[in-house]
Design a protein around this nucleic acid. Sequence first.
DNA 1: CGATCCTTTGATATGTTTCAAGCTTAGTGG
DNA 2: CCACTAAGCTTGAAACATATCAAAGGATCG
Lengths: 250, 250
Amino acid sequence: MTTRVSLLQPLVRRLETHSSLSAAERDAILALPFQQSNHRSCAHLFRTEEPGQRCCVILDGYAARYKVLRDGSRQILNVLMQGDLLGVQRCLFGRADHEVETLTKCTVAVVTAAHLEALLSAHPTLTRILLSDTLYEGAIQREWIVNVGRRDATARIAHLLCEMALRHDQQGLIKRERFSLPLTQAHIADFSGLTSVHVNRVLRALTDERLVSNDNGRITINDWTGLARTGGFDPGYLTPADEAQFRGFN
Amino acid sequence: MTTRVSLLQPLVRRLETHSSLSAAERDAILALPFQQSNHRSCAHLFRTEEPGQRCCVILDGYAARYKVLRDGSRQILNVLMQGDLLGVQRCLFGRADHEVETLTKCTVAVVTAAHLEALLSAHPTLTRILLSDTLYEGAIQREWIVNVGRRDATARIAHLLCEMALRHDQQGLIKRERFSLPLTQAHIADFSGLTSVHVNRVLRALTDERLVSNDNGRITINDWTGLARTGGFDPGYLTPADEAQFRGFN
DNA sequence: CGATCCTTTGATATGTTTCAAGCTTAGTGG
DNA sequence: CCACTAAGCTTGAAACATATCAAAGGATCG
C-alpha cells in the first residue's frame, strides 16, 4: 500500500504550487485509492462520446487536451504533464467538452468519482483546493488565448517554451535549464494555431539565435532572458503572488 | 432588504444553468450581503495592480476581462454579462492575472471576501457549485482558444455571435432572436484577435448574407442555422449534458 | 455646432498557409 | 545486418488572408 500511495506525490506537489495543504489533507490525498494504468503513446485518455465517472492524475508522461473541428483540423488546448489532474469536469458534469490523448507513454492513476467524492466529503476544504487548481488552469488557458490571439508565430512558440519550462520547474523536473518536451512540430502547430511548416521555420530561427536548443524532445534553454523577451512571457499568471520569481525572469 | 436581496437573482439563474441549487442554498445566496455599485462605461472593475478582497456579480450591463501586452495591443478574454461572477480568483489568491473593464454603464453587487467566506462555510456544497461555475467558464475559454487558434475571421465572429446569443438565452435575455451586444468593432477585434478594419469587412459580409443584423448594439439573428454553420458553433460546451438543445442548433 | 468616437472604404504590405518534394531518422522484418 | 517503411523534419515557390496605413463619412453628445 505504501508504495502505491507515494505515487500520488506529484499531485500533492502540483496542488502545493498554488495552495497550502494541511498534513491531514496531504495524507488523505496520498491515501486516495486509485488504479494505476499504463497507456501507449497516442492513446485516448478521455473521449467526449464516452462519459465516465472517473478522473485521473498523470504520474508519468505527457498528454494533451484538444478539440477537433469539423474540417478535421485540431486545436490543442493544453499540454498535460506529471501532477496534472484530469476529468474533474467529467466527474461533476458527467461529460466534458474536449478530448485527452497521450503524447508519450503515460502512467496515470485512475480515481473513481466515488472515491473523489469520499475524499471531498471527509475533507471539505479540499473542494476549495480543487477550485484553486481549476482557477490556476483557467489562468493558463487565458494566457493561451492571448498567445494565439495577439502574438506572432515566433512569440507564440517562445512563450510556449517558457511556460513549459516554468511548469517543469514547479514540478522539480528541470535540471540545468533542461527539460523534456516530447512534442512534434505538428503538435506545436496544433497547439499554437500555426502550420507545422511554419513551426519548423520559427523553431529553426529560435535555435539559430541560440535561445534554445532541441535534442530530440529534450529542450535546453540557452538564454532565459532572451527567450522570455521574444515570447513576451510574464510568469505572473503561473505563480502565487508572494512567490519568489523564477530565476531568469526577474 | 427584500428589494436588495432579489437583485442577486441573476446570479442564481446563472448558477442554475449548470448546477441545481437546493432551496436553502438559493435563499442563502439571495441573502448574501452586498453593496450595490454603479460604474460608467469604460471604467475599471478590477485591476491587477490593486489586489482586493472582494468579488462582484454583474447585475446589469456588460464588462470584459482582458490583458494588455507590452506593445500596447490588448486581448479580450471574455465578455461578461448579467449574472457573471467576477473576482473569485482574487478572493482566493489575493491577485488575478487579468483586468476587468466595463463596456457599458454597469450595476454590480460587490461582495467582500469575508461574506463570501461566510456563505461557503455555512453551505459547504456551494463551494462545489462555485467549482462548477469555474469549470463552465473554463469551457468557454477553451472554446475561445479554438476560435482564435483555428477558425478564420468570418467563423470567429459568427461564433462569437452564436455564443453570446446562447448565453443571453440562458439568462432569459433574448427576445425574438434579438439581444443586446454593446461591442464596438474595436472590441470585437480585440476579442477575436483581428483588426477593427477587418472586423468591419467581415461584419458587413455577415449582414450582407442576411445571417445577422446589427442595429446599434442590438443584434438580431436572422438565420440561426446559417450562422452556426459559418461559425462552426456547437453549443455542447455551454449546456449541461441532459439539457434540451437550444432552438436552432439541433 | 464643433468635437469625438465609431464606422467605412481603398491601396498596399506582410506573415502565414498551401502545395510539393526531398531529406533524416528510427523502427521492422527478412 | 541490410533494405524497407513510416514518421517526422526541412526547404522552396506561389497563393492568400489579414494587417497596415490613410482618409473620409456618420453618429452622438455636450
